[in-house]
Nucleic acid binder design. Structure first.
Lengths: 213, 213
DNA sequence: ATCGTAGATCTTGCATGCAACTATGCATGC
DNA sequence: GCATGCATAGTTGCATGCAAGATCTACGAT
């Protein structure tokens, strides 16, 4: 995997452009040329070209040879597709965790610490911080499955979901408590080694998100 | 997405190198430099570099800045991870197809035609052709869900499974009939709008594969 | 014999230049 | 008015060159 440090020009260009797309500053259908990013970042076309290629494989940009790049618009069913696939991966991860004897002590502590943070953010109505903790919560469960492929896919879905949030408005602060309660129940199901129960709660949980979008 | 034609040097380099890895000619842990591929393909380093970046994002190659590229070895649990994730995605796709009123007539014809091909190949004990039809069968179901993200992920998993097959030996011709029978049952479940039945058959089906690896 | 160090060699990261291709605007002919 | 051809500008694809970092080797000091 590419180094995370922004020291490398290609990595900077990738993060910069992806952020433009995810935050909606480049909206769907819009054309964008490598030259523009070059100018804004003060690097040559090579690293920007590499960044574009990567965004192309992630289906955020659509490149056409010698014609240019167009920001892929959010598909009408994007929310459904993303949430459905996330649910599939996370449910499967939970089943694996349960099949392996339940979450390790370390995982459990992490989840509990995360829940406390969520509680704090929900109380402060800090939606931004809550959403971040939310992501971390679900990612922790997937990571606990020990399936690196699932972790990888989950990360890609996280990007797309972030874009959806920016595009389709956010979450109402009043919903935070409900979401937090769902998360508590998920941890309970995991501790009870109830994989199907986990899948059921998750399904309702995801449906709530879908309703919000 | 990049153009499929091998006209572009970068695409050629990507397909060429990926094939080396998938077919096991470059085994895990082995170092490989861009220069080598350049020589073998007669192109400059630029397109090869781009190919390497892409293989890095697909977790087939691990790049280290200014050190080189190493072919990622097949993880011990790779087979389990791949099959498990495939099952998750395909089951979810089947649920979607059923929720949308069952497979379209077009999809059904395609599946049936595919089954006939499988029958032919199984009779001829043509494992290679059968495996290809097998892949196409499952891909068709996922595609029928209309979830492009799932389709994308499924494609990535297909590459990894191909690598596993090459590495861990193939399928015994005698098993072809059993696999074909599973496929028939899957189509039946789809026609009966029985998503959970589909998931159940698929689970057994995948477990068979896992046993073979 | 062992350790450390300097040099050589290998590797990639990036800037630059050129060529090929696409799309656009405009003049031309009908 | 409308289609056609051409020049032009804009875009990417790729080769090349240079520099920076990493690794290996040889040699000298201890």
């Amino acid at each position: 995997m590419a180094d995370k440090a922004a020291a490398l020009a290609a990595e900077r260009a990738y993060l910069y452009t992806k952020d433009l797309i995810l935050r909606g500053e480049l909206s769907g259908g819009q054309l964008i040329s490598e030259g523009r990013i070059c100018g804004e970042l003060g690097v040559s076309r090579t690293p920007v070209h590499e960044a574009f290629l990567r965004l192309d494989t992630e289906r955020l940009l659509a490149l056409s040879s010698r014609k240019g790049a167009v920001v892929l618009p959010v598909a009408p069913q994007e929310a459904r597709d993303v949430l459905e696939t996330r649910e599939a991966i996370e449910s499967t991860a939970a089943r694996r965790v349960v099949a392996d004897g339940g979450p390790a002590q370390e995982v459990l502590s992490r989840l509990r610490a995360n829940l406390e943070r969520q509680e704090e953010y929900a109380g402060a109505a800090d939606v931004e911080a809550f959403v971040e903790a939310d992501e971390e919560f679900h990612s922790s469960v997937v990571a606990a499955s020990g399936n690196p492929i699932a972790v990888h896919f989950f990360g890609l879905l996280r990007d797309r979901q972030q874009r959806l949030r920016h595009q389709l408005l956010g979450i109402r602060p009043g919903h935070l408590a409900v979401v937090l309660d769902d998360h508590r129940r998920l941890v309970d199901r995991l501790r009870a080694l109830d994989a199907e129960g986990y899948a059921g709660v998750l399904s309702v949980h995801v449906a709530r998100h879908q309703g919000a979008l």
